[in-house]
Amino acid sequence: MYRTEEEAELLQSQIDDASSTSERVKLSKQLKKINEQLLELNKYEEVVHHWADKMEPMDLDDGVKANYAKFQELLAKIK
């Protein structure tokens, strides 16, 4: 379980217990952001798990460009 999942559960209970509408709205926005992060984490975890299962060899002597091309799905875009 990710820490963000625990945080989402805590926020949901705070929303349920919130006394004012403004507080509920504020907490709901935070919960929405956390849920979006969790979705992104789960998608990335699937990709990483797939690559880990493939056990793709990496030769550091090939250089950054060759290895980046091989693993670009896992890495951030080069700017």
Score class of each variant (00 low, 15 high):
Lys77Ala: 08
Leu41Thr: 00
Arg3His: 12
Ser19Trp: 13
Lys79Glu: 07
Val64Gly: 08
Lys79Tyr: 03
Asn67Ile: 02
Gly63Ser: 02
Ala76Gln: 09
Gln30Met: 09
Ser19Ile: 07
Met55Pro: 05
Lys33Phe: 10
Val25Phe: 05
Ile15Glu: 00
Tyr68Thr: 02
Leu60Ala: 05
Ala69Cys: 14
Glu7Ser: 09
Asn42Thr: 13
Lys54Trp: 04
Gln14Phe: 08
Glu7Trp: 11
Leu41Ala: 07
Leu39Cys: 06
Thr21Glu: 11
His49Asn: 11
Leu27Glu: 05
Trp51Ile: 08
Ile15Tyr: 03
Lys65Val: 01
Leu74His: 04
Ser19Phe: 11
His50Ile: 01
Glu23Trp: 10
Asn35Met: 05
Lys43Asn: 11
Tyr44Leu: 11
Lys79Phe: 07
Lys32Gly: 11
Glu56Tyr: 10
Ser28Val: 06
Glu7Leu: 11
Lys26Thr: 03
Gln72Thr: 05
Arg3Ile: 02
Lys32Asp: 14
Glu45Val: 01
Glu73Asp: 06
Glu45Phe: 09
Glu36Arg: 11
Asn67Leu: 07
Asp53Thr: 14
Glu9Gly: 10
Ala8Tyr: 07
Glu23Asp: 09
Glu56Ser: 15
Ala76Asn: 14
Tyr68Asn: 00
Lys77Tyr: 15
Glu46Gln: 09
Val64Asp: 06
Lys70Leu: 02
Asp61Gln: 02
Val47Gln: 06
Lys54Arg: 07
Asn35Gln: 09
Asp59Arg: 02
Lys43Pro: 04
Arg3Lys: 12
Val64Leu: 04
Tyr2Glu: 08
Glu7Phe: 02
